[in-house]
Simulated assay, not measured.
Amino acid sequence: MPYTTEEGGRLNNFAREPKVYRADPPSEKQQLNYVILGGIGVILVGGLIFVAFSVSSLS
């Protein structure tokens, strides 16, 4: 553990820094999957909002 000593003899403990790496851009297949999952998410949220409005107008 990397400790440092401050004024007055207090110890300060720093977290270990993670290894830095470059992220690769997504491939075309991954981009297509993101678009499909995003479309499914929009449809589900839209359906939930539609159901909520239709149920709330019944009473």
Rank of each mutant, 00 (worst) to 15 (best):
V20A: 08
T5L: 13
E6H: 05
P18K: 06
S57R: 15
P25G: 02
K19F: 12
K29T: 12
D24V: 07
Q30N: 02
I43E: 01
F50G: 06
N13C: 08
G8W: 09
N33C: 01
G38A: 12
K19I: 14
G39N: 08
P2K: 13
I49P: 02
L37T: 02
N33Y: 05
S54F: 13
S57T: 09
P25Q: 04
Y21C: 00
L48N: 08
R22C: 03
E7Q: 13
V20G: 00
P25T: 02
G46E: 05
T4N: 04
R22Q: 13
E7M: 10
S56F: 13
S27N: 10
V55W: 12
N12S: 10
P26S: 07
L37K: 07
M1Y: 11
E28V: 03
Y3D: 05
G41W: 01
F53Q: 07
G8L: 10
F50K: 07
A15H: 03
L32C: 00
E28Q: 11
E7V: 11
V42R: 02
N12C: 03
L32V: 03
V20D: 04
E17C: 03
S57I: 09
M1D: 15
Q31M: 13
G9W: 04
I36Y: 05
D24M: 10
S27T: 15
L11K: 15
G41Y: 01
G39I: 03
I49Y: 07
E17R: 14
S54K: 13
P18M: 04
F53D: 02
L37D: 07
L44M: 11
L58T: 09
L58R: 14
G38T: 08
Y21E: 14
N33I: 09
S57G: 05
L32R: 15
P25F: 02
K29Y: 03
K29N: 06
G9Q: 10
R16F: 04
A52T: 14
L44S: 06
N13D: 05
Y3F: 15
P25E: 10
R10I: 06
D24Q: 13
V55I: 12
E28I: 02
K29C: 00
N33E: 15
A23V: 08
F50S: 08
L48H: 01
G38E: 06
V55K: 12
K19V: 15
L44N: 00
V42L: 15
E6G: 15
V51T: 12
D24E: 15
V35T: 06
G47S: 11
Y34N: 12
P18Q: 04
Y3C: 09
E6S: 09
S56N: 13
L44Y: 02
K29M: 04
Q31W: 02
F50H: 03
S56H: 09
S54G: 00
